[in-house]
Design a protein around this nucleic acid. Structure first.
Lengths: 124, 124, 124, 124
DNA sequence: GTGGTCTAGACCACG
DNA sequence: GTGGTCTAGACCACC
């Protein structure tokens, strides 16, 4: 289902979160699909169950999945979640734009910063 | 020196903070300039001295001003403070760019969002 | 049957969902009533059929309607659905009450907030 | 500093979060105060360092504290944080009020639910 | 069986 | 020394 990159310097649980998020927002994992159980997924990826648990907990907190005790973890209906997240991004963006203005950055400097950030992000 | 906008829904002390920050980072208030005393400033703006005190306390915590007991509040030498703030903005920007990528926004959509935010910000 | 408010800043499909939900929980649309077909409803409201489809899909996921392939969409027998939703509301309410307590809000402040919210909600 | 109640059925890390949050919002822990180190605090409470770590991580996510690698965890300037949280509560409240209206709850039923929730919350 | 919590002990990067 | 991550193994509640 997913592959861990041990050359990646980020923590494993972050990689797991990112990859599952991707599968969900791209619609590859459809709403109400059951995710692998904490234990099985850990065995499959040869990592500790706690690491998967951590990833699942965070994904639930973000609203991408929901968990049912004694049953498993499931993909949320993502129409709302993705829209919510998009609104969130825009909201945060607005705040940062205001802050940038406040501390005296010019529009040009700000756009330079953004372009630099975009370049640093891999695979976009 | 500054004007309070009572139509603004934010608390007054936040407005005071924002406006003084602006004056400082734009260099209008030069380092070591004495700010109005809490009492006088409050009278001038027709607000409660506690509100000014709160703003000054926060500005000191953020490093924009420093206070000398028995004398008053003074503008910090702001070069390093501003650089710190710029780094902060860039850091937050990087996080948001990653988030935007993760939830499936395309570069174009993201840049659209940014342009929209910039347009919404008055006087930049 | 329903009217779209183009001054409303929310997406159209959300408005459609809200309004149909209302008609169902108020009993105006009785169980097993057939809803307008996606195509006709779209024409009636002068919007894109995809928008209606999206609303119907979400309403089905929430349990308010069910679809029969080749026939159409029908109102669910709603007693259990509504009870489920009521339990959901109470659950969320409990969480927010705890949060309010945790951040140091007094009972009085909290109840003030609630009354303010209720007043802001139109037509209740 | 704080005491764990083993009769409490909630997880330990939640108790720690709640108690520290309380100390912060009540102003007993002032901004920039250093919290006990993960290890020392764990020894003091006779629990596992991971449990403290979890509490600190969550408190940082919520904005109540900030951590500096290699140095320690510190209380955030809480003026903004608490105001932010209060706004959050009100925002969530508004959403839930709308939802309650949508599913056909009357004002009276809703207020009953709230009073019930408030009663269930201990020590408020 | 499942998720969720907790303990014990280890390693890393940072300062 | 500090926080942060990860592993191993255990126990509980729920279904």
């Amino acid at each position: 289902m997913i592959v861990i990159d041990y050359k990646d310097k980020r923590p494993i649980y972050e990689q797991v979160i990112e990859k599952i998020t991707n599968l969900i927002v791209r619609g590859i994992l459809e709403p109400d699909t059951k995710l692998p159980s904490v234990r099985n997924f850990a065995i499959e990826l040869s990592i500790n169950p706690n690491t998967i648990q951590r990833a699942y907990t965070e994904l639930e907190r973000q609203g991408f999945i929901y968990s049912v005790k004694g049953k498993g973890n499931y993909v949320s209906s993502n129409i709302e979640v993705v829209n919510l997240k998009k609104a969130e991004v825009k909201d945060e963006l607005k705040k940062i734009v205001e802050k940038a203005k406040d501390i005296g950055l010019t529009k040009e400097e700000f756009l330079d910063d953004i372009n630099q950030c975009i370049e640093e992000v891999s695979l976009w």
